[in-house]
Amino acid sequence: MAKVLIIEDDLFLRDLVYQKLQSSGFEAYQAVDGEEGLKKIIEIKPDIVLLDIILPGIDGFEILRRKKENPEIASIPVIVLSNLGQKEEIDQGLNLGAKDYLIKAHFTLDEIMIKVKNVLAP
């Protein structure tokens, strides 16, 4: 079973994604902020990370940057799931190594699950 880590500070969103991941047959983990998220990436070494950008403390871009610098976890794919959707932000996310950049409100959970599956089994 593929391990998926969701890093998201909003309780409702995190819960929804978490439950959806479980019902879609993933081993789901969650983190509420950047620090916890980074810690869990190193501990759990998930198969994929769903990452919010605006987080208390370390933000999503910083997590991407630190992940890139740490060879142990650098190869773990990340899908950004954010409210920010401006060109520069999308470019920044993709340049920092995110596999995909999704604006939350533009996708349903099912569509997000398809994206996750696509990244895991291309």
């Binding site: 409702f12 929804l16 409210n83 349903t108 959970l109």
Partner: peptide, 22 residues
């Protein structure tokens, strides 16, 4: 606008999952 995106996402995802009979 960015702040509004979170609740609209929650609403979207919730309604969508109810409509899909989940």
């Amino acid at each position: 606008a960015h702040q509004l995106r979170t609740p609209t996402s929650v609403a979207k995802w919730t309604i969508d999952s109810i409509l899909k009979g989940e």
